[in-house]
Nucleic acid binder design. Sequence first.
DNA 1: CACGTTCGTTTACATTTGTAAACACAAAAG
DNA 2: CTTTTGTGTTTACAAATGTAAACGAACGTG
Lengths: 148, 148
Amino acid sequence: MESMEVNGTEMTSAEWELMRIVWTKGQASSTDIIHLIQLKKDWSESTVKTLLHRLVSKNYLSTTKEGRRFIYTPLIDEGPAVQQITSDLFNQICDMEKGPLLLKLIKETTLSQADITSMQAALTVKAPNAPTEIHCHCLPDDTCNKCC
Amino acid sequence: MESMEVNGTEMTSAEWELMRIVWTKGQASSTDIIHLIQLKKDWSESTVKTLLHRLVSKNYLSTTKEGRRFIYTPLIDEGPAVQQITSDLFNQICDMEKGPLLLKLIKETTLSQADITSMQAALTVKAPNAPTEIHCHCLPDDTCNKCC
DNA sequence: CACGTTCGTTTACATTTGTAAACACAAAAG
DNA sequence: CTTTTGTGTTTACAAATGTAAACGAACGTG
């Protein structure tokens, strides 16, 4: 399931890695991007150029000419993009797995005190109306062997 | 980034949907699978057969002959597979985005009381040592414009 | 002003993935 | 026992993706 869908179109893993760089820098020239990605990935200059080009065609990046080079700027924000690809993934996962999954993520992710506080608050809000059991919804009710 | 990596090999979205069915049923014949997937997806019988075949080659499913048909059984468990693809996704996301992302997931996911309790416990454990600020790690320290 | 350097654009090509028809074989039916 | 039918296997092919060389235009340099 290689590609993450954002905004209707989809972005591949390779493209995503480049977006991360542009998001982090705010904007960058292709040279910057090539150098930065090569710290992590063994991609040729040509490969990165192709990927950047595709990101522009897909309207994820815009370019602004500045002297001889182009400056790449994100056309979509990182937060929404991150939420989107995650939602997409969660939509492909059995509902019964989500609780344990989130628990594991909470345990493994480095969270700030503020993050923790807001999560605790959210959980406190949810608790009163939380069901005892979760149904999976993987299949139409009567064909499910897992939760029903 | 279409494909989710599990166990070293990778599984595509389409294949994943079939695995969900087999996981949910425990095991199933191709006919069962074809009928069940067609409740959700407009895939031809042939397409499903191809996909099942690929899942067998990739060692995600095994087959057992039973009369004229084969019974497909998962060779990997759903829980670990789910955790794997999620970890993979999280590894491609900026550390600074993870807190807000998890918060959103917690809010949007239907959680059981047990899930909530264990998450609260996990958060309580983490709180004392939680940092005030999160750094992003998207780029080597001195090249980062976002957190440093 | 000619020339090499530095980009962005085109073109290329092997794999993977989505989609599916054609084929082969075993089992059920008559 | 022959025919039909349900199933797995092969073969097919276009689109997407990873990977990259070749080409061409613009800019700085001598």
